[in-house]
């Protein structure tokens, strides 16, 4: 082995190592962004729930989308954020616990930090057809474990928890047509990319989890968790 080839060998190895570090770094950065942002968003969520309960009773009655509300305004997780939390999602199953804050807008910029509520659909936890999207490799990776009958809890900015039951799951190819939503139905849809372990992004398949709201049947358990509407301060945010 000559000296020249030896150094060439080392050089190309170094370039490859650098590339490997870049790839890992990129993946780590994206993952860290997804995980750490949720901590900041948690704070913003606490504030917006508190803010709601400080409002006079008359203003509290009407549901107000954050973009239109004049007085309090949406609480942004960081000053330059172009999105804000609009709901909280909780799931407890054998594969772990998920506690996620749903952000406004299912665009790439909000999905990087958390699951995004698709604009134009009903807000999660309210009456109507609601759609929430999330990345299959970060926040919504747990969707693959959801089975029909599983429960998912959604908290609205009022602090009220609403329980949803998984109805069924299905895979849809976006080339087969758009997502048709029936405005008269009261349901929640969680959407992520499919298959979950695909190597590249931008695949045509989507995994849909359809959930239907469950009437609060067990008052004893839920009443403890739910915020009593006449209370001055919510206790819902404190029970975890």
């Amino acid at each position: 082995m000559t000296r020249h080839t030896h150094w060439r060998c080392r050089g190309s190895a170094a370039v490859l190592l650098l590339a490997a570090l870049t790839f890992y770094g990129q993946a780590g950065y994206l993952y860290a962004k997804a995980v750490l942002a949720q901590w900041l968003i948690a704070d913003a969520w606490q504030q917006s729930v508190l803010q709601h309960h400080r409002l006079p009773q008359s203003q509290r009655q009407q549901p107000r989308p954050p973009s239109q509300s004049t007085r309090p305004g949406p609480v942004r997780p960081w000053p330059w954020a172009d999105t804000w939390p609009i709901a909280r999602l909780r799931y407890q199953g054998e594969h772990g616990t998920q506690d996620l804050y749903i952000l406004e807008g299912a665009t790439g910029s909000s999905l990087a930090f958390g699951p995004g509520h698709m604009a134009g659909t009903a807000a999660p936890g309210t009456k109507g057809n609601s759609v929430v999207g999330g990345h299959r490799d970060t926040h919504f990776a747990f969707l693959q474990h959801l089975q029909p009958g599983d429960r998912v809890q959604i908290q609205t900015p009022k602090g009220i928890w609403q329980s949803f039951r998984v109805d069924h799951t299905q895979v849809h190819n976006i080339q087969d047509g758009p997502l048709w939503l029936d405005a008269t139905r009261h349901q929640l849809q969680l959407i992520t990319c499919y298959p979950f372990d695909a190597i590249t992004a931008n695949g045509p398949l989507r995994y849909r989890v359809l959930l239907t709201p469950v009437a609060p049947t067990s008052p004893g358990q839920l009443a403890a968790k739910q915020t009593a509407p006449n209370q001055k301060r919510p206790n819902a945010t404190l029970f975890f």
Partner: peptide, 26 residues
């Protein structure tokens, strides 16, 4: 009229691909 079409969001970061490429390079 009660149905409305919506586009699906882009819901993958491609972390798997990045990790694969990184491992391969290493």
């Amino acid at each position: 009229a009660q149905y409305s079409p919506h586009s699906y969001p882009q819901t993958a970061l491609g972390l798997n691909g990045l990790l694969w490429m990184g491992t391969l390079s290493a």
